[in-house]
Design a protein around this nucleic acid. Sequence first.
RNA 1: GGUCCCGUAGCCAAGUGGCUAAGGCAAUGGACUGCAACUCCGUGAUCAGCGGUUCAAAUCCGCUCGGGACCUCCA
Length: 444
Amino acid sequence: MKIFNSYTNKLEEFKSIHKGVVNMYVCGPTVYNYIHIGNARPVIFFDTVRRYLEHREYKVNFVSNFTDVDDKIITKALELEVTEKEVTDKFIAAFLKDVERVNSSTDYTKPRVTNYMDHIINYIVILVKKGYAYVVEGDVYFRVTNVENYGGLSNRNIDDLISGSRVEVNDKKENPLDFTLWKKTDVGIKFDSPWGKGRPGWHTECVAMIDDIFGEKIDIHGGGSGLMFPHHENEIAQSMVLNNHTLAKYWMHNGLLNIGGSKMSKSEGEVVLVKDLTVDANAFRLFTLSTHYRSPITYTDEALDVYVKEWEKISRIYSALFLKLDLEDSLVGNSKINPDLLATYKELLTAMDNDFNTANAITALQNLTKISNQMIRNKTENSVLLSALKLFENFFEILGLKLKKQPLSIDDKNTYKLWLKARTDKDFAKADIYRDTLQEKGII
RNA sequence: GGUCCCGUAGCCAAGUGGCUAAGGCAAUGGACUGCAACUCCGUGAUCAGCGGUUCAAAUCCGCUCGGGACCUCCA
């Protein structure tokens, strides 16, 4: 299995630090608003990564944080005249609902910044003590120039960054690139610290959480490519000072989702919220996974419609297989795989093994769909159809697609048989009535 | 101003040095079918442009054009 490591910019053979276990961390949301479908991309993608690793029989320890201390949260709380906690509780609940809405697992460890304040402050104290951070009037800044290889992840060098014309002007900083570890605040929620009341900067929480939860370098650190600089760069810098390692063995970054020619962003432009999605979650998932995760995706209604149809096609054949086997009491029993079916499974593994090439995995699923349609048409024996059905379930499990069928009741089976009989007897009036009944129940 | 990414058929998209450039949607011809739906079979591109490296390039290098990201909170 190969993973493209953003840290080395290379496709590398994946080898977990501990045999059979993968420790992974994905940067989670700042909870001050509903998430949009661009935010859903890393949710879906890293959920798929997890599913595949589990399919490959790794025990995956999946952690993703909630940033529940932030200026935007404070602003929102003031605006709504509620406490910060009320804001974050509301949007954490909303986030988890959206995660479920896109068929992703919510069964993971979810640390919050407010529960990590002691750890964070403790880290900042150490950074100051070691000379990598400095205190100015109640603020604490990280001294970027002291870290060797700063910019290694995003392939930037300090000189290029400084020459950039958009670097923020802040007289308190020794260097414009230095980032805030602790910020003295007057407005909103604040916490006690050795430097006075304030709140932590954004970049320390992930390091503190990873260190506390895993206690060592982890296997995979994921997030959107927008986080690579400066967030992940800053995480690495702090981790190097604190623990002398780069925090994660493999860094993975997903590309952004664009709409109307530019990226979807909460602060500007057009946004589609996950909670407002009207299409089937499976279709949305297929859409998201149909482009390689490192490439940008452009959202359009038309593109999404293609996958609505695609999912209908896939669910139709799955249902047809299930129905046929059910009617012939062949849902349990021996299954027999044939070379064509086996080839699609191998295609799936090959695709996913190659840096989670979900686009090709979906192609494999489409091939399975076509083959299954051919087999039903060719009256292939049930044991083979059963293995096709089971293979679909493997695909669904890995890609996070949800489709559950229940065996028919005796009555429904009878109706189905009556329909077939009426057709054989060319009693089409009666046949149409049975067909309507079956269609109403969603059986055919 | 600096750094970086991308440009494959009408649309989406895989492929990043070597057989006839995957797959899907749309279109179109055919088959199946009581009707409809579904489904199956067939049909399309030399890879933005130009130049170079190589026995061999969509894939590497250079330039040009076009689109985008980052350098500020952002998945």
